[in-house]
């Protein structure tokens, strides 16, 4: 009787040990898989202004985006020359897609400055990520802001973080050059394109106030973005906006561009029929 009881308990203990071992093995693999797939609740949208612009560059755009529907909180970060960060505003606890503007004390033009600004952006990005624990985000860059973001994505993006969508507005990938001859910056960007996140979708918007560009950035320079992104990321779309309000500094608050940010970056306030149309999906009755 006793032997029988000991045998029963022995079987139970072995079974429990067996379950523990296989459970732990399974969980280790599960955690690894989760790590790769798990998107954080918070997915901020970064906004980077162009040269000569400050942290308030997007104020008008934000007031338009926050007009109806979900109100996004706004955090502004200014990076000084020595990498020190100054914060204005805050991210609301319940806001899954806050706006974060990253501006620079040295906001001058030129490739050497753009390289420094990409480095400063990475300092701000790392710090913000440590505070807010996000592992995916989207970004909008106006003018050189788009170039800074592209450089950041090629050189500094941490491995465990992914970018969902990038929108560059009138970004001069070939600086102010009006020909197809590539500048050193474009050559470097093309050389680093293999480091770009493969799942990212890129929207490049060009303004054409006249036949050659938006008055500041030539269309050909914006168009050079195709050498960087085309066939390298999940999707690359170029959009040309014409008509009134398409000069360089007016582009971020241009109604059509605001609509595109809502549609492609925030994926909000878009009627389902339009979304379906955009995805080219058949209507389901």
């Amino acid at each position: 009787m006793n032997t029988k009881r000991i045998a029963k308990w022995g079987v139970c203990i072995i079974a429990v040990g067996f379950l523990t071992f296989f459970g732990a093995t399974w969980q280790r693999k599960q955690v690894k898989d989760l790590k790769n797939e798990f998107p954080s609740e918070l997915a901020p949208v970064f906004f980077v202004p162009g040269s000569s612009a400050g942290q308030n560059r997007f104020n008008l755009l934000f007031s338009k985006l926050n007009k109806d529907g979900h109100v996004h909180s706004v955090l502004k970060v200014k990076v000084s020359r020595d990498g020190h960060l100054t914060y204005t505003g805050k991210i609301n606890k319940d806001d899954p897609s806050p706006f974060i503007v990253v501006a620079f004390q040295n906001n001058h033009d030129g490739y050497s400055n753009i390289k420094k600004q990409a480095d400063w952006f990475s300092i701000a990005f790392d710090q913000l990520q440590k505070i807010y624990h996000f592992n995916h985000f989207s970004a909008v860059g106006h003018s050189n802001g788009g170039v800074i973001l592209t450089l950041f994505l090629e050189k500094y993006l941490p491995k465990h973080v992914t970018i969902n969508r990038l929108m560059t507005i009138a970004s001069p990938f070939n600086l102010e050059r009006r020909s197809t001859k590539k500048t050193q910056m474009l050559k470097d960007l093309i050389a680093g394109r293999k480091n770009l996140p493969k799942k990212m979708k890129v929207y490049s918007i060009a303004g054409t106030e006249n036949y050659s560009g938006d008055g500041t950035v030539p269309f050909m320079s914006v168009d050079s973005g195709k050498y960087i992104f085309q066939d390298c990321v999940a999707g690359y779309t170029e959009v040309v906006v014409t008509g009134s309000g398409t000069f360089h500094s007016a582009l971020p608050q241009n109604p059509q561009i605001v609509h595109m940010i809502e549609q492609y970056i925030l994926k909000a306030n878009i009627p389902s029929n339009v979304q379906r149309q955009n995805k080219m999906l058949p209507r389901i009755h």
Binding site: L34, K35, F38, S40, E41, L42, Q129, K130, H133, F134, N135, H160
Partner: peptide
Amino acid sequence: DVAIRQNLSYVFMHHHLTGVP
């Protein structure tokens, strides 16, 4: 659910379980 997601997000970023939100 939010707590679970935020905790997971934190752990995947910091690679340890201490200090989860």
